[in-house]
Design a protein around this nucleic acid. Structure first.
Length: 670
DNA sequence: CTTAGGG
DNA sequence: CCCTAAG
């Protein structure tokens, strides 16, 4: 553990941020009371949750438990073989799509200890992915594994640490989803085949330097757009740029592109897996292992969706089911006549019951760090601790209907849009830290990331040091928070938007988040595990980014930037005017300019939203006009509007090259 | 990745 | 704001 500390410090300035940036919208830190998890059997907890949700379910846990074991076992075998066979292709595939998913399927909540342990041990991504087929033993060193990986030659050359990381990254690309879906209790309208499912974790060792190279950081997190992969690319590609802070977003796109490039490489048959595979999987209740899982992800560009628990609706009669809330749109519809599946019959509360089964819950993301020379066995234990921690630290259930969080607990299901009419396929559940005070208003805010772990993702824009330090497991309650706050302010969106008051503090959440750092007291080798708060992304869904109207100040900054840079260099304009406003991308800026031009050209009565001073609009038109002409003409010199031009109250309709600008002062902005 | 435009 | 074709 002490080594951890050392390492983190080692990653000073030169290092990259530890945690990827958060989704564009909804960036918040979350609290997570460090309810000194009394080792609450996570699964018991889940069982409880499931129990609540399953209105009439008389758990068929016992049976499931037994079944689960077998299936897991089988699945694992299959995975292994499959991986051996299709190794390479799949690996890159999975990686490219950025969804190195791995999930440990934990049998039904009521599972007994032995089984529990078993299932946890087996399907771990670490084993199935990182170590792939080359490592069997539980005592191998991560380092060794790395070497082996690179030796296979299937990955990129090991030229430096970064590369090595990549290798590892690629290696752990496959996922396993061992669906355990045994419906034992046929009498129950609601089949509680619930199972705990770890997210499609992906473990990505972080690059390291010099002495620190002995540590491997595994960002094990919920498969999502915010991948360490993104982070890594980001740093590699743009580290040299001051503007790397916006890299995340860019990367996201890049990854998307890569995914698309990969998809076509699949064989026709494989490609269709996304639908066919899933379909058959759910329909036939067959096991789906790593490879398939990977493929499912490929066509999906909907990664933004969180991994909600899968909900299966049942039609007691037909015994048909449909999985719902599949992150992958398109799949969901294919499953079956989803509507029918939710139909309810013969019930006392005639036609008013909603029946469904929660197939599985996904565990929030985890952040793990272990030394490179860590043993596999130890890492497994670490992960186990992480799981236990996250499950035992207090969870509550969140519900999502049609992509939206249902926060009002007082609503009836009907009011929430849940009825037996068949829309259950839009229903999803999430597990969230129960200590986190949900505030709808706060949720959509773009809060500064104060906590390295919970805030996750958004940190790429900041120097890494503070993050590193905060990872110190030994300082869960350290004053680091304050530091972060201060630090954050420096990097937070500049005071460019007076209309965007500093987001309300979320003390509870913030302070609580730090408690996420957990040091297992049970295992000497255990390492700090930090469950990443799932809330962030889960609440975000795949919705478009939250709308952020440009404030007048921002508009002014934009206008000024355009006046100087022109309308063809949006990236520069963005950097110039919104350097610290991470939520503004150059595309946003460009779009805004577009609308500004439009706004400026229409009657004031037709304008909507916060009125923009006519003065600014005038400047918009002028600048727009100016740059338009510049382009058509001698584009030899990308000259910016000179002072002279700006000072000149010239005619906008100049035919010749001498386009001039009015006397609006450029430097008066802000 | 950036731009430029349509949606 | 999103998505994408182009560059």
């Amino acid at each position: 553990m002490s080594s951890k500390k050392r390492v983190r410090h080692g990653f000073s300035g030169y290092e990259f941020p530890v945690i990827p940036k958060a989704p564009r919208s909804v960036r918040r830190r979350h609290s997570h009371n460090n309810i000194d998890n009394d080792q609450i059997c996570a699964f018991e907890l889940l069982a409880a949750v499931a129990g609540e949700l399953l209105q009439e379910s008389e758990s068929s846990a016992c049976s499931n438990a037994a079944v689960g074991k077998d299936e897991l076992s089988d699945c694992r075998e299959v995975v292994k073989r499959e991986q051996l066979k299709e190794d390479k292709a799949v690996k890159s595939e999975c990686f490219d799509q950025g969804s190195c998913v791995e999930s440990a399927h934990l049998p039904e909540p009521a599972v007994q200890e032995p089984n529990l342990k078993y299932s946890l041990d087996k399907p771990y991504h670490i084993e199935n992915n990182i170590f792939h087929t080359e490592v069997e033993g539980g005592s191998s060193n991560l380092e060794d594994v790395c070497d082996k990986r690179t030796d296979t030659g299937t990955q990129k050359q090991l030229t430096d640490d970064g590369k090595q990381t990549e290798d590892l990254t690629v290696a752990n690309s496959c996922s396993v989803k061992g669906p355990i879906e045994k419906h034992v209790n046929n009498n129950s309208a609601i089949n509680s085949d619930s199972s705990v499912q770890l997210p499609w974790y992906r473990a990505v060792p972080r690059p390291s330097f010099g002495k620190q190279r002995n540590n491997v950081k595994l960002g094990i997190r919920d498969d999502d757009e915010n991948s360490f992969g993104s982070y890594r690319h980001n740093t590699n590609i743009r580290a040299f740029r001051q503007t790397s802070r916006i890299g995340y977003k860019s990367m996201r796109k890049m990854l998307t592109s890569r995914r698309w490039k990969v998809a076509p490489q699949l064989k026709a048959g494989e490609r269709s897996c996304s639908k066919y595979g899933m379909k058959s999987f759910h329909r036939n209740r067959k096991r789906v292992c790593a490879l398939e899982r990977c493929r499912f992800e490929i066509p999906s560009k909907r990664r933004k969706l969180c991994h909600y628990s899968s909900v299966v609706a049942y039609d007691q009669q037909a015994n048909s089911k449909s999985i719902s809330n599949s992150p992958e749109k398109g799949i969901k519809r294919d499953i079956t006549g989803a509507g029918a599946s939710a139909s309810v019959r013969n019930h006392r509360k005639k036609d008013s019951n909603v029946k469904f089964s929660i197939k599985s819950f996904k565990v929030p993301e985890l952040f793990i760090e272990v030394p490179e020379n860590e043993t596999v066995g130890s890492l497994k234990r670490t992960v186990m601790e992480a799981v236990k921690t996250i499950l035992g630290s207090g969870l509550r259930v969140g519900m999502v209907v049609q992509g939206k969080k249902v926060r009002d607990d007082n609503k009836t299901l009907q009011q929430a849009g849940i009825s037996q009419s068949g829309n259950l396929d839009t229903l999803g559940f999430t597990l969230e830290p129960s200590s986190y005070p949900v505030s709808p208003s706060l949720h959509s805010k773009d809060l500064p990331a104060l906590s390295p772990y919970v805030a996750d993702h958004e940190l790429t824009r900041r120097p890494p040091s503070p993050i590193m330090e905060l990872e110190l497991p030994s300082s869960p309650s350290a004053p680091s928070e304050t530091r972060l706050d201060e630090h954050d302010e420096d990097y937070h969106e500049l005071a460019l938007s007076p209309t965007n008051p500093i987001d309300p503090p979320t003390d509870v959440a913030i302070s609580g988040s730090r408690a996420l750092v957990v040091v297992s007291p049970l295992n000497a080798e255990a390492h700090p595990v930090v469950p990443m708060n799932p809330k962030n992304r889960c609440s975000e869904l795949s919705q478009r980014r939250t709308r952020r109207p440009f404030s007048v100040a921002e508009v002014e900054a934009l206008v000024e930037a355009v006046e100087q840079l022109g309308t063809g260099r949006w990236r520069d304009v963005k950097i110039c005017a919104f350097e610290y406003a991470d939520h503004r991308t150059y595309v946003d800026v460009k779009d805004k300019w577009k609308t500004l031009v439009h706004t400026a050209s229409i009657a004031p009565q037709q304008r909507r939203g916060e009125p923009v001073p006519q003065e600014l609009l005038d400047r918009v038109l002028i600048a727009h006009d100016y740059w338009s002409k510049q382009h058509g003409k001698h584009q030899a010199e990308p000259s910016k509007m000179t002072e002279a031009q700006m000072q000149n109250v010239g005619a906008l309709e100049n035919n010749n090259n001498s386009v001039s600008m009015p006397s609006k002062m450029v430097g008066s902005a802000i």
